[in-house]
Amino acid sequence: MSAADTTEKPRDAAHGTIEVSIWRGRDEGRYETFRVPMRESQTVLDIVTHVQRHLDPTLAYRFACRVGVCGSCAMTVNGRPRWTCRTHVSKVVENGRIEIGPLANLPVIKDLAADMSPFFEKWQEAKGAFTPSKTREADIEPISPETRERKIIDAAIECINCGVCFAACDTVRWNEDYMGPAALNRAWTLVNDVRDAGNAARVHAVAQGGGCHACHTHQSCEQHCPVGLNPTASIAGLKRRTMQAFIRGELE
């Protein structure tokens, strides 16, 4: 059944069903098939929610905002990592079928809920936390949106921590030391933050074995990032910055 000819029907009416395969279990498991009514403007998250509310209440998955802000609903949809709350079924359905699994490159807690711990541990490794250079008593530092640094930050700051890029990156899959696109993208925003006092340690951290130089510039992260960020460009920036630091003898 195609998703196209739906305009005449009432907004909520089901028009046919879709065959949905959903991963059940942990790292060991299998795909289980359900039939879910198709609706207009239905998202992949709507499908998962339908299965859990009407077909199998034991299905585990994760979401919060449903509007593409919180970054908690990412899953593998027909082989690609996506934010499921903003992914329309009509865009991804293939031959009336859809396969939904947990996010790749992460351990599975249960069913569609991946364990995000490694993702956030890498974030810490890349020194992704702001290091203040002033105390709370100091005045707020005005930052002009026109400065070069702030423009670089603007291009990279809107990360929602969804882990889609982490799941899309082959280097993450091959090299468990690799910090991954999101953590390095975050490090790049802080490297350009004139208020941050932690950049010596940060540049040192991302110049190590699992840091920015492990990136192969595949641009898979950029291809998949749902908010349109370009971690590859941020990582290229870190490569330049660490190279300068290395040549000036500022590392080690």
Binding site: A207, Q208, G211, H213, K239, T242, M243, F246
Partner: peptide
Amino acid sequence: MNVRLYVL
């Protein structure tokens, strides 16, 4: 690969 190997 660290920065030294990368530069080399």
